[in-house]
Amino acid sequence: MTALALIGALILLTLVGPLVSPNGFDHLDWSHVAAAPGFAQSHWFGTDRLGRDLFVRTLQGARVSLAVGLTATAISVGVGVLYGSVCGYFGGRVDQIMMRIIEILSGLPLIFFVIFLTVIVGRSVFLLFAAIGAVGWLTMARIVRGQTLSIRQKEFIEAAISSGATAPRIIFKHIVPNVIGPVIVYATLTIPQVILFESFLSFLGLGVQEPRASLGTLIAEGAAEMQAAVWMLLIPGALLTLLLLCLNIVGDGLRDALDEPDRAG
């Protein structure tokens, strides 16, 4: 519960915070370059080496991370549920081929795909959403397929088939609503993974581009300056960790509550 409340507070902060501060995210304040955090001036979290306000940049970065996390998770849920339920419902050869495709895709380190996608289409935030979402659906599809396989044996599916329902109707009206539990649990656990992945890409310089900030780019900048200005690393690092921690705790709690066995991974 504490974790959930903290996430709420963080989201609120990322929305309200930048409005409260008198500084813009890309405003260069040359009179306060690499200033230490404090409440004496308006830069509460200090500034970076170009004099940009870190309070606003960190919160903005967190907002980007959250947006990527939610969007990419939504994409991966959509694709994964559809793919997995089709696999599980039709079974047989269709299932075998489709699962083989998943296995091949998961044999490819995810990072390649995203690097290629960013390189091919050019760097944009939307692409980032799509790219991360597009690779995140593999596990979701596996889980949904497993659930669908067992649901397909139930009587109500048989009844639906014998009353002449079409395959799409059965999948969307009868199967999908019944797999929603595990899907929600896994989706909550996907969000922190996606956020982590986004920061990782941004850290490598492949994600969000200047002057926009994401937690990953801020951490990369901070790590370069850490000997002179610890706060540049400390603040975004702590915020990212806190965010991931809360999301993970909520996901774990949800899984325990829905009595799923701990088969994480």
């Binding site: 982590l196 920061s199 951490i219 850490m226 000997q227 990212l240 960790t241 993970n248 774990d252």
Partner: peptide, 29 residues
């Protein structure tokens, strides 16, 4: 363990380098 899973290595490593490399000087940064 929850914390260990959560903290990304690109946050952890600079922190470790800061503590053991810059402040304590036990290991190369």
């Amino acid at each position: 363990a929850v914390i260990g899973i959560t903290v990304p290595s690109f946050v952890l490593l600079p922190f470790l380098a800061l503590i053991f490399g810059v402040y304590l000087r036990w290991l190369p940064v």
